[in-house]
Amino acid sequence: MNGTHATVADAIGQLSDDQLQAQLLEGVSRTFALTIPQLPQALYKAVANAYLLCRIVDTIEDEVALTSEQKRAFCRDFEAVVKGRADAASFSRRLAPLLSQQTIPAEHELIRCVPRVIAITHSLDQPQIDALAECVEIMAKGMADFQDKDLSAGLANLDEMDRYCYYVAGVVGEMLTKLFCHYSPEIAKNRDTMMKLAVSFGQGLQMTNILKDVWDDHQRGVSWLPRDIFAAYGYDLAQLSPQNNNAAFRAAYGEVVGVAHGHLRNALEYTMLIPSHETGMREFCLWALGMAVLTLRKINGNLAFTQSSQAKITRRSVKATIAASRLARRCNFLLKLLFNLAGIGLPAPKAPLLAAPNRTDNQLDA
């Protein structure tokens, strides 16, 4: 085994920074491996690195072999590594042997590559490093708090769902916006508006994933759905089961779909604030947005689905999203038209608040 790891390490050592990050991205997220290369070269390295840092936090939080205390300790250590206050190689050596076989091989490789990933982080411009470090800090502390909750019967209410989505996705939207503004003074003129919309963009994507993966999460004894909305329709999330997928459940589910639809509408507004000549940046946003809208539409068309695979869009739909985005990417009128067409049949989009959830609790004090 050690010989195999040495051979892999030698092969990785021959890769350039961009080649390494592309290989790691392909292993842990085919979607981002597809979208991130659409960005301008000046943004590619930082955004690819940012995603890998976030995925390292996800790997820690999702590892079933780690206790809650271990997860918090490793997240604190990783924050220090990103900020240059702790040794990346030591962190990697301590964490890698603790990962179970339930963690996918690509994430095992990512943890072994932490020293290279962090070396790339520290080669970035200081404003980029600061944006990535703040994102990792907020994400790690916020996600750790949710790991300690009993999630078998869902989240208390929509506000709590907002907070969860912020820590796993909204904060990523804020970080990306900081990187975009650092890259382009023209984009920076809309920084305040885009920062607000970025949180909503992230939440829309995360809510779509929650709605798609509800039964996979249920098998793990977890639900991220808001109890208050389901209770209003007379459905108790403590009884959540595909067998209890009744009219009350579907009505509440449809309302949550409408909330997600509203966040994705804000994602479109965010994208249209990017200058039309920045076609790669627009495509980076539009591909994710388009696939999310089509996923919501598939969910809404079959609210009685019982497996996440039944809510997954086809490769043909992915190709259609890419083609349509390239056709309309420079024209806001066409983008609005395509968004409305893609959303036909969805509940009317709710108008979510454009603000990050309250962070005055212990998330940033731990």
Rank of each mutant, 00 (worst) to 15 (best):
A342E: 11
T314C: 14
N340F: 06
S309E: 09
L338N: 09
A311I: 11
S325C: 00
R330A: 04
Q310C: 06
A328F: 04
F333G: 07
I313V: 14
I322N: 15
S325W: 00
T321P: 05
R315F: 12
R330S: 08
L338P: 05
N332S: 13
A324K: 06
F333M: 05
K312Y: 01
R315H: 13
Q310E: 13
R329F: 10
Q310T: 11
K319H: 04
L337G: 04
R315A: 13
F339V: 00
K336I: 00
I322K: 15
L335H: 05
N332G: 13
C331L: 10
C331Y: 08
L341C: 03
K319P: 00
L337M: 08
T321S: 10
A311E: 00
C331M: 11
S325K: 02
G343I: 00
I322S: 15
S308H: 08
V318N: 02
A311K: 00
S325V: 00
R329G: 02
R330E: 09
S309D: 08
T314M: 15
N340V: 00
I322Q: 15
A324W: 05
N332M: 07
C331W: 12
A342F: 03
A324G: 05
S317A: 14
L334W: 13
I313A: 15
R329Y: 10
R330I: 05
K319N: 06
L334T: 11
A328T: 06
T321N: 08
A323R: 13
L337R: 13
N340K: 04
T321R: 02
G343W: 02
V318L: 12
S309Y: 08
K312N: 02
K336H: 08
T321I: 01
C331F: 11
L341D: 13
A342L: 06
R315S: 12
S308P: 05
A324M: 03
C331D: 12
R316D: 15
R330Y: 08
N332F: 03
K319I: 00
F339Q: 01
